[in-house]
């Protein structure tokens, strides 16, 4: 597991930092060097607020190496309120209660750990909105 790779992605993994195009206003996650909409090269960091909606999901019963201990677990595509979509593990949810369209919120959880003596990777996951209005 690359230490540098996870480390350089921490703004995204911890705080959903995307970009907003200074020219056309489009918001991207993950951050982009060029706006995919207008090819502008002037984009500014833009943190996303972590609320979204479930677009699709799957429950995995066979996992890639590093995730076997978590089986079964759910992964979904989430559309954020600001527009961008991302892929995230779904947590604090009953696997049989998953529904396309359900409202979700970001939380930071352990993504995986590199054995008993390696680093622990933390990053965004999504869960059903816990307390409406709070």
């Amino acid at each position: 597991m690359s230490l540098a790779r996870h480390w350089r992605l921490r703004d995204q993994r911890y705080r959903l930092e995307g970009t907003a195009c200074d020219d056309c206003g489009t918001i991207q996650f993950p951050p982009r060097p060029l706006c995919p909409n207008c090819r502008s090269r002037t984009l500014s960091p833009h943190p996303l607020d972590g609320r979204g909606q479930l677009i699709s999901y799957t429950v995995l019963y066979q996992a890639p190496a590093g995730f076997e201990a978590q089986i079964p677990y759910a992964v979904g595509i989430v559309e954020l309120g600001e527009g961008p979509r991302l892929t995230a593990m779904l947590t604090d949810v009953d696997l049989d209660a998953l529904q396309i369209g359900m409202s979700l919120e970001m939380t930071i959880r352990k993504l995986r750990s590199d054995g008993d003596d390696g680093v622990i990777q933390y990053g965004y996951k999504f869960r059903p909105v816990q307390f409406e209005g709070a």
Partner: peptide
């Protein structure tokens, strides 16, 4: 704690 929680994630919350 859930399987993906620890003192770090709970402290953040």
């Amino acid at each position: 704690p859930g399987p993906d929680e620890d003192v770090i994630t709970m402290s953040i919350e």
